[in-house]
Design a protein around this nucleic acid. Structure first.
Lengths: 173, 173
DNA sequence: CGCTTCTGTCAACGACCGTAGAATGAGCAG
DNA sequence: CTGCTCATTCTACGGTCGTTGACAGAAGCG
């Protein structure tokens, strides 16, 4: 229910009723709505193998593919709630931190941290639109199709390569 | 307040008190909390010029740069609320639709719609992390720095080019 | 059997919510 | 002055929320 409705709109009474029990019983076992959320909502800390930037980018893609195939409901609960619940936001930051530093370590540029943050933003943007907003194109596409399209992005972001030169665009400053 | 707290946690009473007036007065002028939100929250429908895929990608980057410089609070209200409020979600979809179809039209591949959706997901992922979650690296970076890093991504997604060949990664299945 | 512990229900409290409507008062036309 | 309109406040209703604590039965144990 946290994944479906977010923190505020999920009520203890509704949780209890969905479980066929009394609201008091939920309180008895979890003590607090925050604690209930805390136990229901977990973001997986996917470990990235250390290696070259290309390898880490590919690993991130693989991790994304798995999540695009079936993101755990507990993660969706955090994602759904992170914009309106401080605890969920902290959880999101905390779960992203290790992956972020692993990414940063693998990227060989001075702006590695920013590049890593962008990669993380892309991953979560895609997941949010697929699962939470259910934008049709992203919700229907196969994980493989998505990560194949994202692969060049991830490569260039992780390795600091520039894509093949195209016709020069003249843009004013 | 909608941008800061989201729909549910923003109360009419708090809005009124912040304005130094009575809650009844807010009701008198807006009728309903939904109507108040409806009038406060607008997503700008940035028009993209029609043109080649490269040009449209560059225009999307320019639009992103402007939003990274100062995203209007009314947009943040929608973004903050879209995961927990159906109206905000609709608003998000509606505002994205024209840009999405403009992007789709400019991309010369059969999977144009998916590519356009990914571009949109990236844009919103970055904005969310910068403004709503305030991830430090993304919040501190200059818009130019961010769009310079994203440019190759946008190019390859919009033009279907593959980035320069790198050492072959052996990945199974 | 009695006693404790666990599982579970029930009713209620206090807080806060969106909302409604009556009351107040100022400004202005005649 | 009277009367009307509008801005604004006040009070309150009905509802929902998280949470509490009293209570009832079932289960295990001496």
């Amino acid at each position: 229910m946290f994944a479906e409705l977010g923190y505020e709109r999920t009520t203890i009474r509704a949780v209890a009723s969905a479980a066929g029990i009394d609201a008091g019983l939920v309180m008895h076992y979890f003590g607090t709505k925050d604690e209930l959320f805390s136990r229901a909502a977990k973001l997986p800390a996917d470990e990235l193998p250390s290696g070259t930037a290309e390898q880490v980018a590919e690993a991130l893609l693989t991790s994304l593919a798995r999540r695009l195939d079936s993101e755990p409901v507990a993660s969706l609960a955090v994602l759904r709630s992170m914009l309106t619940n401080a605890d969920a936001a902290d959880r999101y930051r905390a779960a992203g931190a290790p992956q972020l530093s692993q990414l940063t370590a693998a990227i060989p540029t001075h702006d590695a941290e920013l590049r890593a943050s962008l990669l993380s933003a892309i991953v979560h943007g895609v997941i949010i639109e697929r699962y939470l907003l259910r934008l049709s194109r992203l919700a229907d596409a196969s994980p493989d199709q998505i990560i194949d399209l994202l692969r060049p992005c991830f490569r260039t972001l992780a390795t600091a390569q520039t894509p093949p030169s195209t016709d020069q665009l003249s843009t004013d400053g």
